[in-house]
């Protein structure tokens, strides 16, 4: 009987301990990772997550989660300019507030260039691309031997969505804009079912700016460390002018 009393006491203590341990707000928090704030290195320019010492390669990190924001990247001056606007924006009013110098811009998963041209390559490894490019005399020669056809932006009235809130009324609000179909292949969003299916391309894209600089770029990720979609992590490598050998 003494043993029973002792055991009963043990159970009561166990019960109290379990109650205290479990707590009202749950247990085993340690299983999970805290979503790290995507803090960027303050020594790097805004929008840059990585930048090589020679400035030839780097990684961009752009907040493209908003439908009313274009994110402009200027490689030449290592400058990033996020531009927020309202849903009453027009192409003209946007043009009036756009930065003067920029190379390409990202809106959600859409891309436009500043008078540039771009193509999707067969490469999924930047090392392989550089190796092949190095074997050519110039970047332009490499492009032509590889049969890479560069494509300019096209003007689209119904691609860049800036207001989704009327979807239930049967329409979306678009901002007529230039749009580069090639680079925009980097992420396919199939909205035929909810939630949409996202399929990221592993391909590397070549972008030749309006003044003839060639860059290789690829989409590393489109979500933040907290799991929010629209945070674009973009790797790039400067290749050189078309008429120059690989830098």
């Amino acid at each position: 009987m003494k043993h029973n009393c002792r055991f009963t006491l043990f159970l009561v203590i166990l019960c109290a301990s379990v109650g205290l341990l479990t707590g009202c707000h749950g247990i085993c928090d340690w299983i999970y990772d805290d979503p790290e704030e995507d803090l960027l290195d303050p020594s790097l320019p805004d929008g840059w997550k990585e930048l090589s010492d020679d400035g030839l390669s780097g990684t961009l990190y752009l907040d493209a989660s908003s439908y009313t924001r274009w994110n402009y990247v200027d490689w030449l001056n290592t400058r990033y300019t996020p531009l927020d606007f309202g849903t009453d924006i027009t192409p003209d009013s946007l043009a009036a507030i756009e930065p003067v110098a920029w190379d390409f811009a990202v809106h959600r998963y859409d891309v436009k260039t500043h008078g540039g041209r771009a193509a999707e390559t067969r490469y999924t490894s930047i090392d392989e691309l550089l190796s092949d490019c190095r074997s050519a005399n110039t970047v332009g020669e490499w492009l032509s031997t590889q049969g890479i056809q560069l494509e300019s932006d096209v003007w689209c009235d119904s691609v860049v969505t800036i207001d989704m809130s009327h979807m239930l009324d049967g329409y979306l609000v678009y901002l007529p804009s230039f749009y580069n179909r090639q680079i925009s292949h980097w992420l396919d969003v199939n909205t035929s079912q909810m939630p949409p299916i996202y399929t990221k391309s592993d391909r590397i894209y070549v972008l030749v700016t309006g003044d003839g600089r060639a860059y290789a770029l690829w989409l590393k990720n489109y979500i933040s460390s907290g799991g929010v979609k629209g945070f674009m992590t973009i790797g790039y490598r400067y290749l050189g002018f078309l008429v120059e050998p690989l830098r």
Partner: peptide, 13 residues
């Protein structure tokens, strides 16, 4: 996958 992290966004106790 990209971060190899497990981020909780819901807990009902």
């Amino acid at each position: 996958h990209a971060f190899r992290s497990d981020v909780r966004d819901y807990s009902n106790v």
